[in-house]
Every structure is written in C-alpha cells, then in structure tokens.
Computed example of a mutant assay.
Amino acid sequence: MRILLVEDDPALSLGVARALQREGWHVDTLSDGAAACAEGLIDQYDLAVLDLGLPRRDGMDVLRTWRGRGAHLPVLILSARDELSDRLQGLDGGADDYLVKPFDVPELVARIRALQRRAAGRVDDRLVLGDLELDVRHRELRHRGQRVHLSPREQALTELLMARAGRVVPKEHIVSTLSSWETDFSENSVEVYIHRLRKRFADLGVVIRTVRGFGYLMEAASTGSQDAD
C-alpha cells in the first residue's frame, strides 16, 4: 500500500512515516497544504493521512479540493483539533476517519488497516486465492499451511495482485504503488518481479497473466493460462 502523509511537524512526520514503513507500507511525506492539493490529484495513493493545521492551505481546504476534483482515496485526518464540531466537519467534509493528537501509533495503524479493508471490501486481513492465503497484517504468504518466503517487494506485489484477483492491475499502478520518492520502481522492475513471482508460483496453483498493453492479472490456475513474457 502506498500512503501520502501530510504533516508539517517534522519530528511527528518522521516518526509516523517510520512506523508505517515498518508495517511494509510505502510512505511519501509532504509538509504543506498547497503541495498536498496537487500531489493527491496527480499521483496514485491507496490512502492519505492528513493534518489540518498546514501552512499555505488548511487541511480541510485540501480535503475539499480532493473530493471536489474526484479523488476517492480514503483519508484519515490526524489533528490536534479535538472539538466535536471539528470532528464532524472533517467527517462530513469527506474524511473517512478522524484521529485526535496525541495518539498511540498502534491505534493509527489499526485504523489504517480498517480503512484498507473497507476500501477492498474485506472483513479481515486475509487474502485467499486457490490454495494461497496471504495474511496482510503479519505479511505471511502460505500455501496449504506452508509458508512461502518472499522478499518485501515480492510480498507487496503479491498483495497488490491478490487484492485484485481476477482483475487487471495496470502496470502504471504497480509502478506508482511500489515506488517512493526516495526509491524508483520502474516498468522494467515490474517485469523482473513478475517473472520472479511466476517462477515461485509455478507449482502453487495460481498464475499471473499478461494483458498486453494494460497490465497483469492473477487468478487460480484452473481458470486460465499464463501468457508468455
């Protein structure tokens, strides 16, 4: 999952980013509202954590801009504004959740996971495809109960494909999701990792098909055949 964190307190931003990265998520950080308005509209994120007291443009203004321009990413407001009226304004203004500062990091992580499940239409942290089961929370992939060892990038790509099993995932979306501003992840990198996963999953009952000109699709082996690279 790729998260946009908009927070102008450098220490808090760094601490939250590191905590979310430990969960295996890719985090991009911004510190002002004007930049956030633009970034939330032109880039692909799975979720945004948004402070309200931002320089240049207030967080509520950022949220209204996103929603007014059709950005549907889940938004969790993280703010020291703790009045009921503030919380109601945030939720009625388009936020999906509202967490008051100071907060406990485990609660923030749990709320993000809940928003992730809701967006994916899931009721728990498991993804199942054929005999493969991915525990998203603990980042463990198992085949008939036996753990399948993957690198962090392989794990993230597997989660992305399994969460959309049976549907095409555009290559550009994979690049965006698995990239961060500090570490580029190119279309060539996608092809390399897809090739690795195909080899790993060759005997595990799932295939990754290439939909030429669009992207990749993961499905149970019995429902289709794997295209050649």
Rank of each mutant, 00 (worst) to 15 (best):
G40V: 04
G40W: 13
L41M: 12
L41V: 14
I42W: 07
D43W: 02
Q44V: 13
Y45T: 03
D46S: 11
D46F: 05
L47Y: 09
A48M: 09
A48C: 10
A48K: 00
L50Q: 01
D51W: 04
D51L: 11
D51Y: 06
L52I: 09
L52H: 01
G53K: 04
P55E: 13
R56F: 11
R57V: 10
D58M: 07
D58H: 12
D58I: 05
D58S: 07
G59C: 14
G59Q: 04
D61V: 08
D61S: 03
D61G: 03
V62A: 05
L63D: 05
L63F: 03
L63Y: 02
L63G: 00
R64D: 14
R64P: 04
T65G: 06
T65W: 12
T65E: 15
W66Y: 04
W66E: 02
W66D: 01
R67E: 03
R67W: 09
R67D: 05
R67N: 02
G68S: 07
R69K: 14
G70K: 13
G70Q: 08
A71G: 06
H72G: 11
H72E: 15
H72R: 15
P74Q: 14
P74G: 13
V75E: 04
V75S: 04
V75I: 15
L76R: 06
L76I: 13
I77M: 09
S79I: 10
S79C: 08
A80I: 05
A80L: 10
A80M: 11
